[in-house]
Every structure is written in C-alpha cells, then in structure tokens.
Design a protein around this nucleic acid. Sequence first.
DNA 1: ATCTCTCCATGATCTGGATCAAAATCCCCG
DNA 2: CGGGGATTTTGATCCAGATCATGGAGAGAT
Lengths: 281, 281
Amino acid sequence: MRNEWLSTCTLTMQGPVNRQDVVLKLTGSRSVMEAHLPTNPGPIASLTPCGGGQCASVCAECRVRLYAVCAALDRDEINELERITQHISLPAKTALFHAGDAAASVYTVTSGTLRLQRDLADGRRQVIGFAIPGDFIGLAMDDHFGFSADSLTPVNLCRFDRQAFARLAHEKHGLMGRLHDFASHELGLAQEHMVVLGRRRAEERVAAFLLRWRERMARLTGASATLALPMGRQDIADHLGLTIETVSRTLARWMREKVILDVPDGIRILDQARLEETVAG
Amino acid sequence: MRNEWLSTCTLTMQGPVNRQDVVLKLTGSRSVMEAHLPTNPGPIASLTPCGGGQCASVCAECRVRLYAVCAALDRDEINELERITQHISLPAKTALFHAGDAAASVYTVTSGTLRLQRDLADGRRQVIGFAIPGDFIGLAMDDHFGFSADSLTPVNLCRFDRQAFARLAHEKHGLMGRLHDFASHELGLAQEHMVVLGRRRAEERVAAFLLRWRERMARLTGASATLALPMGRQDIADHLGLTIETVSRTLARWMREKVILDVPDGIRILDQARLEETVAG
DNA sequence: ATCTCTCCATGATCTGGATCAAAATCCCCG
DNA sequence: CGGGGATTTTGATCCAGATCATGGAGAGAT
C-alpha cells in the first residue's frame, strides 16, 4: 500500500556504485529516505592488506588473540593459520560485504566496531548485532552471507579464505571446538535477543542494550566509567526493533533523571542499578 | 505498575509441584492468568527408559539418523554413542527441563514436537522455537539451560550425558563438525527470526511462520497438503511476539479469504503464493 | 563565517496491535 | 452423552510506540 510506488521505481547508475550510498532521498517521508535500493552489490571499498599481506608473526602481538578463535591454536598452528591470513584495514562507514554475497572469506575483528544487519526489500532493517574485537564473522554462513557487514569506526580484521579456514578447522580439532563454542555462545545470545525483540517494552529494550554493551566493552577494556557508543541512534533503534525517536526519548528521559550522562561519542552510566531494575521488570 | 501486586504475592505448595502447572488463576486479567509462578523447579515427569536403557542397535533403525547429529558417525562410532544413550519417552504436555536447570544431558528428538521457551518474571514468555525429529537440544547451553523445554505431543528422545557426549565430540572430529554445522544453521535461523520479531508486521510474521513450519515438516514427511500444527495459538503468538487474538484474527481472515483451510489439528495451505507475497512485502 | 549535511531531540498526532470482555468451540473424562 | 475446564474466536476500546513535523547542534568544506 504505502510503498506501492516503489515497485515501479527504476534508477540507472553511471559508474561504480557503492550500495551503501544508494538511498532514496525523497523529502516528506523519513522512512523512505532511508530505504536502501536493492542494487546489485557494487565494488566494496578497497582494502589495504597490512604490509602487502606478508606480515610475519603479527599474531604473536595480537591483542585479541586470547579472546578470539585463534586461542585454540598452539604456536605452530598459529603460524599455519597466519599463512592463510590477510590483515586488512577498513575505513569507517564502509561495507565489508553485503547480504547474499558469496562468502569467500571469514573474519576475526581485531579493532573497531562493525554493524551486522539484514535488510528487507522496502528499507526496513534489522541490526543483527555489532561485532567488536575478538568476534568471529562468518559462523552462520552457508556459501552466502545472510547479513551485511559495515564498519562504524575504522576496523582492522584478519581475513581468512573460507575454504582454507574450513580445511584447517577440520584438521585442527581444537579450532573446530573453539568455533563451536563461539557458535553456541552466539546462539544463546541470539535467543536472549529474541526475548528482547518479542516480549520487552521499549524502555526495557534500551536498558538491556546498554547493560549488554557495557558488559562486552568491559571484557575488552576493563570496567570503565564511560561507555563509548560507536553506533548511532538509528542503529540502536534498528537493533532493538524500535524507532529512532523512541530510543532518543528514552535516553533523553534517563539523562533528565540522572540515570545516564551525555558524554561525547557515548554515555556514562550513573545509576546502573536503575537500568538493571528496568530489565528485571 | 500494572503487575506491582505480584511482588507481594506468595503461595505455598504442598507436595511436589510441577512448575508447568503452577499458573496464577485469577479472573479479570487474561495475561496474568497465564503467568507462570517462579517456583523452584519441581520434579519433572518421570521418564521411561526404553527397554530399561539396554536397547542394542536401536540407532540402526532410527528414522531420523540421517538428519540428526548422529549422521556424522560410522557404524563403530554409532555403537560407541549408543553406549551413552538413553532412549526416553515423554508424554504430551510435560516438562523435559526448565531454564536454569543444570544441563546434565543433551538430546536428539526422534519423534514428536517440543516447545522451547524463555520466561520473564512477570509471565511474559518468548517461544524460542519448536524442536522436531532430528533436532538437537543442548547446542546453546553452558552448564545451565537457557530455556525450558516442554513436549507438545508425546515425544521420544535420545538422551546423552552431556559430559560423555562432549568427550565423544572431542574424540570424533566428525561429530564436532556436525555439531558446529547444526549450531551455525540454528544461528542463521535465529538471526532470521530476529528480523521477524524486530521489523515485521503481524500478518507477515504469521505468514513467515506458516511457510517455515511447512518447510520443516516437508523435510520430515515429504510435501503434504495439510500442515499439522501441534502448537496452540498462544504458542504461535509467543513465538512471534504477538497476542493470541492477533494470531487468531489473522488466521481467521485467511480462512475467510480461502488462503488457508481449517482442518483438525492443523491447516491446509490453499494459496501458498499469497503467503509468500505477504512475506516478501 | 557561512553553507550544507547528517544526526539528534522533541512536540503533536495517529494507529497497529494490545487489552478487555464475552461468547463459542473443543476436549477430556466420567 | 453431558458437565466443566481450556482454548479459540470475535467485537469494542485503548494505548505504547510509530509516524509526522520541525528545530537545533555538530562537523566538514570552502
């Protein structure tokens, strides 16, 4: 009904097109302004292999090694893994891959934050999650990615050829076990998020998100008073199944009530107990 | 606010209490009537080990073996697995385990349907999914189950001691790989369900559910005109983040419009294309 | 400094689906 | 076959959060 006109809308692009940039810019309807056009995936941003792909023993000094899947491997195996590894950097706000792309690679995040999302044809989107250092990207794929990945900040990743990585996982039992631990853990989190999306009120969703994000960041950087939020309000909304207005209003209310404090690029949680009560109901 | 009085409500039970039976039965508020009390988990229904736990080579004639995790094992390994297997039957509408229980066992479903759910303190519930023959239960657990499992129909399961099963998985590489495949696949489905819960309208949710359930049943029994729905309307609603009224109205409308046909214990899909259009938007 | 663009905040209004209510149907079980 | 609880259906009304509209604050660019 409301989006019917979309079905007859055709645009022709000249030159290479990054799909992330192709949004309908029509005034008068905010939601349509943000609709991504279902173009063929264009070339993604060029990637910079670190040291020309020839970095020896970068892993040895990797800060996330003990959190990542790599922790399953001993020194020799790490070297073996490193042979199929490409260390790459991605600028902020750049696509790593798109939903539906052939999954040629899998990744471990070593720094920065990525947004993982699925898009519906009419522009609605669900942010599946945010990937942070130590996270493995590519657990839930067949031959094709089921979601898109975009950097929110500059990001560094280890890229592994998927076939080669799968071969290694089948040789090295510890690696497969570790992959399975990651997948099980992710599955548990996904199920928890289903409860949030299916049965929680707006305020509870935002509180649950802040507490969980704080937890994840604490694992990386240790407990910190301020909480960096590299994702925008719209991203939070799309993660929680809300609108940007609802997220904004909820945070604004908590700021008025001194539950949280606004700081540049994030917040500071002043009253964690209050957020926990909100989640507990 | 609305449920504040619950915080002062205390009931004392005499004799063993099956948590599934403990619901507040107060007229005047439907949602509270259905609230499960947070009692300590009582003893679950007694389980009947098939043949006193001494069934030799039951696996050989198992109808779901090729779909289940067991498919990863050769004849000798199957025998080894069978030594740590207990074949059990569960009557309909019976708890297998509760969220928070120590996860002593993991399971493969061989017949029947189970409902997997998480409950919030105030009675809201999210049905994580439904387990059918071939499904493995226990992928996403740490030491404790993150959700409850109840039979909707009579159910037969293979119960494995979790420690022993984990040990076997660490010895038999194929089994671990298969477990990981199951976990990745589940993760992909969970992510898809997030889109449904976060961004889809009521009608789209129900259509997506029917199509997906049909797909799963088709894998088991082959394509069939009628679709058995062992779960109730409330279960569907709690799976889709809707109310029973919305589910009921949506199905009723489709029946009026000859998209589906009411049959005992299920439906018949008359116009699959219509449902697919609904999901596609 | 000014322009532009993107993101965020906030008030006003609307609405899809929740809630409330009541009747109808189903399903055991004796 | 009939009584009583559980589940489902259907109608009326309500409301949390969506939608619409507008203004403001920052960050880059020139």
